[in-house]
Design a protein around this nucleic acid. Sequence first.
RNA 1: GUGGGCGUAGCUCAGCUGGUAGAGCUCCUGGUUGUGGUCCAGGUGGUCGCGGGUUCGAGUCCCGUCGCUCACCCCA
Length: 412
Amino acid sequence: MSKLQAPRGTFDVLPDDADAREAVEREARRVLEAAGYRRVETPTFEATELFARGVGEATDIVRKEMFTFEDQGGRSLTLRPEGTAPVCRAYVEHGMHKHAQPVRLWYLSSFYRHEAPQAGRYRQFWQVGAEAIGSDDPAVDAETILLLADLLDALNTHGIRLRISSLGTPETRAAYREELQAYLRAHEERLPREVAERIDLNPLRAFDAAGIEDLMADAPKLLDRLDADDAAHFAEVRRLLDGAGVHYDVDPTLVRGLDYYTRTVFEFESSELGAQSGVGGGGRYDRLVEMIGGPDTPGCGWAAGVERILLAADRPPVAPPPVDLYVAFVRPGDRATAFALAGEARRAGLGAQLELAGRSLKGQLKQADRVGARFVAILGEEGTELRDMESGDQRAVDAGRVVREVIRGREL
RNA sequence: GUGGGCGUAGCUCAGCUGGUAGAGCUCCUGGUUGUGGUCCAGGUGGUCGCGGGUUCGAGUCCCGUCGCUCACCCCA
């Protein structure tokens, strides 16, 4: 008999985790809105074609990782595997090219990919992301990178390293890819089998292979093949980052798995994470808006995994909601009075909890202590008493004055 | 999809060379008639992932299966 459980690759967010995740959202809002980004929400599912065109037919995401289904009208829909294409779709659909550019948007949403789960990798996961659409100014690239650096810093993530590179244009990249493939084929006898087998599929992987470091050191690098405009653009991005004191490594082998990237690409990784070391990353996507049917519009942005941020971050101790008043009662007949008192206290702005489990008075006091109640109102046969849980003082009070007494006592 | 590790109470785990299920934590109750944080006692709670096999007897051995997890791959 199989027990019902959360589907593979998904997880429940329990109260302690929920607090930590809220902290991520809070800091993201603070950091991004300070830079003029405004929050956006797009649908959980989109037309499959959006991702096929936007993310790229050749990518792993589109080829084997999408949760795709048909609706009752026969339309093919897909649970969003990433956030950039949907945001760009919304940009086009709502005519945001008429706004002052760049339009800056941020989101914190769930995404879905059918992958084998492992540390920091889930089938439903959350990303906080930022997109600046409508400007190809290198300051946009540098600013988005700086914002993610600031966010990771504000969340006390550890072991963070930033790698950046530039992919140039799709044409540059395609020509380079052929050049690299030719180089690898010329030295095929020296390549490990896995690398040789992947020359067609993913030649850039060769840069990560062990044992052929010297061979790859002499291999052609994409950064050396950029045209003058792209090289100048990348140089300016670097100059701005240097000026802002952002530390980074230039890594000519950095590739992002989505087809839409052009020019700047970057990735923040953390040594705290294990195999899935990427915390967040992104880059420029100057062809994406046009690819999905909009006007020729440049864009730049990033996404960071909430679960991965949390894996790399210090978790501040969780603080349960404050309880100013716990309402205890002895006789079942006093339940209605207790119920009304707890409600009155909440409307007066207090954190107030009522005994809800039929405990003994001793058990009720224990529960009040556990939840951190400052005061306990005890409705008893002799009337109402108010107990200060810090000092242990307890005295009779008029039932109608309990809330006022707690408010007064709380301020002392 | 492929490989390694692991699956015993809500949680963390112990169960030696097969002998009939345990601890700590949590939770509830009680320790004089209605009072917390410490302490003491008691109690709730498990078809030992599931199915088959070997055996007089299996949580413990064998096979299968499912799940979790880590890694490859890919990426957030």
